[in-house]
Simulated assay, not measured.
Amino acid sequence: MAAQLLVLADILGSDRVFVSIYENGSTDRTKAILRELRNTLGILAIPHEIVTDSKPRKASDHRIEYMAELRNRALDPLYRQALRYNRVVFLNDVFFCLPDIFELLHQSRVHSAHLTCAEDFETQHGALAFYDTWVSRDILGHAFKSRYQEIAQDGNALVSQLYNRPFQVQCCWNGLAVIDARVFEGPAAIRFRRSAPKECSASECSLLCNDLWAAGYKRAVVVPRQHAIN
């Protein structure tokens, strides 16, 4: 992942990229790897903010509230209004290839999308299965299915999936998302959050989609050709 990020920054240009990473609670070599990455970014003069934290997750912490806080910490440079960028490329812990990010950035521009997602997969019984069924919803509001060619109930989505064409959805995340940076700026900046008392329980990414729609950011697009692997 670090190697791909460095190549991405080199191709786009250091004056057009900011790398923001927030890590906490790791018990492996993650902190050491991030220190090496921080040093490399400094040598290459690529703007960055890499925060490593030893604060563990408490047993009493609400999982979604905790995850929302982590994602918001990664977005701190935007929330502080210290940066002005067009798009945020948000990565989960997935394997990805550099062309996938460029294609998502391209499709985000072509469709003037506020949220553009790849499709993420895992292996089930020797075959690839769509992973993020908890968050992804087709334009009819139905959850995605794990089977690749039967991924949605929306007919337009099914045809688009078959021919590898981007299609409109109500919500997506799928491990790799490109987001219009404007949604995180200004006094009405959207933040990741947990469900309010009278809301149905949902992922912080699902709630982000709902908040985007409520704020008028309704162009959410899935790009079937671009894959991320869990």
Rank of each mutant, 00 (worst) to 15 (best):
L70H: 01
E65K: 14
S136N: 06
T40N: 15
E122M: 11
I151A: 09
A59R: 14
R73P: 05
K58R: 13
I139C: 11
I151N: 13
I151M: 11
N92Y: 02
E150I: 10
K55S: 07
Q81I: 00
R80C: 05
T116K: 11
P99E: 00
T133N: 03
R71K: 06
Y79Q: 12
E150Q: 15
G141S: 08
A68E: 03
H111S: 06
Y85K: 10
R63F: 01
C97V: 05
T40H: 15
L115M: 13
F102M: 14
L140N: 13
V89S: 09
H48E: 04
I151D: 05
E119H: 08
V51C: 09
L91C: 06
R35P: 03
R71A: 03
V88P: 06
Y131P: 01
R109Q: 07
D93M: 10
E49F: 06
Y85P: 03
C117Q: 11
E65Q: 12
D138T: 13
G141W: 05
R38L: 00
L44S: 13
V135G: 03
P99Y: 02
R71V: 00
F96L: 12
L162M: 12
R84Y: 06
G155I: 05
K55M: 00
N72K: 02
A59L: 10
V110P: 06
S146C: 02
R109I: 03
G155H: 09
H125S: 12
F130I: 07
W134V: 06
H106F: 10
